[in-house]
Design a protein around this nucleic acid. Structure first.
Lengths: 227, 227
DNA sequence: CGTGATCTTGAGGGAATTCAATGTCGGTGG
DNA sequence: CCACCGACATTGAATTCCCTCAAGATCACG
């Protein structure tokens, strides 16, 4: 895949960026975004593959992305879900440490890594923004690792609350990913995820109008289930 | 705890630093180390606590450190073991995201975070080194998360190989940490860790002259067990 | 309306945990 | 020096939670 970069294409879209300490990641990364070009990716299309040379840094403009690793025996571990406003591709050294795919049709901002890195060497501001973004990733992965030592109920509750925090509209959470994706993110099987969701619904913590739509009926109960 | 910082105390010790692409983390971080002061910590003494304001960045000069989180119900998740040459305390935003304790009597280099951060704003080189260190942490945590979806056998084998890679002397691995520490790192119980080690010994993959000393008898078998 | 993909539900089995007892090591004092 | 003590580690038996395998239900799409 070959991309011609155009400058000056910073995102005009309002994004639901994760916020920390009142400062959105968006606002803090103005100086690298204009280096990017938007590229559309269809559902399930690979954005990059594990071990490929890390040519770009990425930001989700719209849609959703999963990053994952596949073990030798075929098991897949989803490392993270990236939603509108999220950056990804930062795990790379020279090559990408895992693979990335669009979960739904998505618009992705691609920034040449070499350009950003060169810029970082002369411009401390850019280096600092990269540090902030990487630190954010680090915190998120820590959260994920913490999740993986919990019970199935706790993992699912935790996942729902995480998704709710990131993109809920009035207690309505739209899940862009399949049960298999969720299972691979939580280190569970799809059956266990399904059963646990049903159980949470039975207990009145959530409602499932459709399998991809969760209504939070009792956050209190979810928080208690989170462990 | 109050520390008077002295400058010019860079580590003269030869450290077993993790290497990536032939460049040791040590070599890449010369510009922040001289900002630190060495402080001794006795076994099991807390270095910092979760939610405390993040005053320092740290580097292990000698000894070993565990960083961990304790869940509401008392479960403890060890996020990482830090050995000679390792930096830690980078997960902090304004406050530390978890706690840190010395596993054995240790000598730790403390660098004022504010000093380093201020320096990073004017000195791109410092910002870049912080980025490199943070990226290293990120990769390590990813590895840890990947470990947590595996079976008990795979986790233990993986852990042994990781430790071997970091500090083995001719197939001899000295474990500074207890079985409970290992269990909390792997998301298992001490009984399961113990049983799994016994099983690996029975299969001839390792020998356990004492509980804290592991001899790698058959790396091949371990690598196969890693999954 | 059929067809395949996705999701849910059920029954049985297995891996890891829990609870409990025994064993081992290192340190301390007699 | 060695016997004792407490901490740490190992081993065993029973239980629990999650996985596997299998079938049925629901949804999206042609």
């Amino acid at each position: 895949m070959r991309i011609e970069l155009q400058t000056g294409l910073a995102s005009p879209l309002p994004t639901v960026a994760a916020r920390r300490g009142g400062v959105s990641v968006d606002a803090r990364c103005r100086s690298i975004e204009p280096l990017g070009a938007r590229v559309p990716y269809a559902r399930d299309v690979e954005i990059y593959g594990e071990n490929e040379p890390a040519e770009y840094l990425y930001k989700v403009i719209s849609g959703a992305v999963r990053t994952y690793k596949v073990l030798v025996d075929g098991r897949r571990q989803i490392c993270a879900f990236h939603l509108s406003g999220d950056f990804f591709g930062f795990e790379a050294d020279d090559a990408y440490a895992f693979s990335a795919e669009a979960i739904t049709d998505s618009s992705i901002l691609l920034m040449k890594r070499s350009t950003v890195m060169t810029l970082a060497k002369s411009d401390g501001e850019v280096a600092r923004q990269l540090l902030i973004l990487t630190s954010d990733q680090l915190r998120r992965v820590h959260g994920h690792a913490l999740l993986l030592i919990k019970s199935a109920k706790e993992r699912v509750a935790d996942f729902l609350l995480e998704m709710a925090e990131r993109e809920a509209v009035r207690d309505q959470v739209a899940l862009p990913m399949s049960r298999q994706d969720i299972a691979d993110y939580l280190g569970l099987t799809i059956e266990t995820v399904s059963r646990t969701l049903t159980e949470l619904e039975r207990r009145g913590a959530i409602a499932l109008p459709t399998s991809r739509h969760v209504m939070l009926r009792n956050r209190e109960a979810l928080v208690r289930s989170r462990g």
